[in-house]
C-alpha cells in the first residue's frame, strides 16, 4: 500500500473531515477485520511526525524514510495492542475491534478531558462533526501516566458506526 503522494479530498482540506475515499487506503482488508482489534491511523497529510513508528512494539508501522511520510501499517503485524493510540500527538489513531459475535464493535478513543468517564457509564457517542450518534457504553478507561497522560477510552458501539463515531461526551446530570 502506497499512501505517499496520494491526493486528499477538498472536503478534508477545508473541514478536517475525511471522505470514504480518503479513508479507504488506511483500512485493513475485511478478512483482517475479522481477526481481532486493529489500529486505524487517520493521518492523511504529510507532516513532520513519527512517534507511531517508535510506539509499536511489533514494528507494524513501517519505518519512515522521511519524517514527513504518511504512516503505513502492516496489518499482518498489528496485534491490536493499542499502545500507539495514546502516543499519537495528533490524537489520530483509533483502535477498532469488529471481531465480535454480537454485531457490535469497540472503538478506543484518545481522550484528554476531565473528569474522566467511569467504566460502565453511558455516554453520548459523537460523530466527526460532534453530533450525537447515540448512546454508548464505556467498557474501559486507561491512563498511561508514565508516558504522556493521554487517557484512552473504549466504547461499545454498533459495528456499522466504526468509521462514524470518533468522540464522546459525558452526559449532564439531568441527562442521566
Amino acid at each position: 500500500m502506497d499512501n505517499q503522494n496520494r491526493k486528499i479530498s477538498r472536503q478534508l482540506t477545508k473541514s478536517g473531515i475525511p471522505t470514504k475515499t480518503d479513508l479507504k487506503p488506511f483500512l485493513p482488508s475485511s478478512k483482517r477485520k475479522r481477526k481481532g482489534a486493529y489500529a486505524l491511523i487517520e493521518c492523511f497529510e504529510e507532516i513532520p511526525c513519527d512517534p507511531c513508528f517508535s510506539a509499536c512494539p511489533f514494528k507494524s508501522v513501517k519505518e519512515f524514510a522521511n519524517l514527513n511520510d504518511i504512516p503505513v501499517i502492516d496489518f499482518k503485524k498489528c496485534t491490536g495492542c493499542g499502545l500507539c493510540v495514546p502516543e499519537c500527538p495528533g490524537l489520530a489513531i483509533f483502535l477498532i475491534n469488529e471481531d465480535r459475535d454480537d454485531g457490535k464493535a469497540t472503538i478506543t478513543i484518545p481522550y484528554e478531558f476531565l473528569p474522566l468517564p467511569e467504566k460502565g457509564e453511558q455516554v453520548w457517542a459523537l460523530n466527526r462533526v460532534g453530533e450525537i450518534e447515540g448512546e454508548a457504553k464505556v467498557v474501559e478507561v486507561k491512563t498511561y501516566s508514565k508516558k504522556n497522560h493521554t487517557t484512552v477510552v473504549t466504547l461499545l458501539i454498533p459495528r456499522e458506526k466504526v468509521l462514524t463515531i470518533r468522540h464522546f461526551r459525558r452526559k449532564d446530570q439531568n441527562e442521566r
Binding site: L12, G16, P18, G90, G130, H167
Partner: peptide, 23 residues
C-alpha cells in the same frame, strides 16, 4: 484562506467536538 492552514489532525480534533471551521 480557502483551506485549513494547520495540521488536519488538529482540525479533526475540534470538528469532532462540534466546532465549525469556516474557511
Amino acid at each position: 484562506m480557502p483551506r485549513i492552514g494547520g495540521y488536519l489532525v488538529h482540525a479533526s480534533k475540534i470538528r469532532r467536538m462540534g466546532v465549525p471551521i469556516y474557511t
